[in-house]
Write a protein that binds this DNA or RNA. Structure first.
Lengths: 170, 170
DNA sequence: CATAGATTGTAAGTATACTGTCAATTAACA
DNA sequence: TGTTAATTGACAGTATACTTACAATCTATG
């Protein structure tokens, strides 16, 4: 019994923990994205917002936050920045004075077209160190896990529910 | 040729992209961690810092940032918060007036012992929706990918290099 | 139609995460 | 030894991410 006063855990256990690997991978992914897209001055979240608004023109902020699984409170400032860059427009909804509808501007659509090759390079680089079969396996498992854990992280609405009155005109 | 003015990408492509899945999984992981550990008022990063200081007593802030792959600038405020909670102590290094050495306090060691079961519950919950074999496969691939991508995200020092003069007394 | 409850956007407050910059200090070198 | 270079910690500034709170507005109900 030679000392050993505090043996609860070591940093090596942290390195192998899912939470640590998820955080580290997210750091790396953002870093690669920003590097590939530095010519465009768009963050990953701003990019996702642009794509979502492009796919669902006239969406409002609350539904947008559900569609891109993005915190509702923070989204306000993201929208502000995109509006300041003139990539999106906010228009009041005629039938509901609370809601502001979001639309891509011409330059928003243009930047989206231009940035896509860089984004695809970034996505490819994130997985590049793995063999193709392993990339597929990892993405498959991760997509599955995110889907099954979807309820764990609080999002105001499920993406599908959020869009019932959009796009399909009903 | 019926219209189709902007077909560059849709939100479904974003959902399948690695960057989106990594971000979403990180959100979920943090959410689960905070839920399991809410009785302790410790964030995942603060927890990792405590473990690292416990494993490497007398580490300085720059090396700590390398050990837990944590941004050096942000670490200052993390250390401040841990110091304010009296979980760690900062002592000036005798041989180098720039450096402040970090040590766990008694209550820091105590909270670390107490929180570990909650942390382990959280880590287990993150992977719970997958079959055991899939959990193993996912963690293996992710550990591999993080390791091979380590250079992509800027960290001042590699964890191993950061510790050469610590612990082993040389 | 009046009121309670829900929804929308906004804001305040905390905590990462990153980019820069800076002064104090130490190390390297001419 | 004296100047330069590197290191350390601190700070300012931007951008997520989350919690709670709040006013304006809409909906549901009596």
């Amino acid at each position: 019994m030679p000392s050993k006063p505090l043996p609860p855990i070591t940093i090596d256990a942290v390195y192998a923990a899912p939470g640590y690997l998820f955080r580290r991978m997210q750091q790396i992914a953002v870093s690669i994205f920003m590097e590939e897209c530095k010519a465009f001055d768009l963050t990953p979240v701003q990019y996702a917002a642009l794509v979502a608004i492009h796919t669902h023109p006239g969406i409002d902020a609350t539904r947008l936050s559900a569609v891109i699984a993005f915190d509702r409170s923070t989204l306000g400032s993201v929208i502000e920045r995109l509006e300041a860059k003139a990539y999106i427009e906010r228009k009041p909804a005629p039938e509901d004075k609370r809601i502001k509808l979001l639309y891509l501007t011409k330059s928003g659509a243009a930047i989206l077209r231009e940035i896509i090759p860089a984004v695809e390079r970034a996505q490819a680089r994130m997985l590049e160190p793995l063999k193709p079969a392993d990339r597929k396996a990892l993405m498959g498992l991760l997509a599955q896990l995110v889907d099954l854990n979807n309820e764990a992280s609080r999002v105001p609405l499920r993406a599908e529910d959020a869009l019932e009155h959009l796009g399909k005109g009903g």
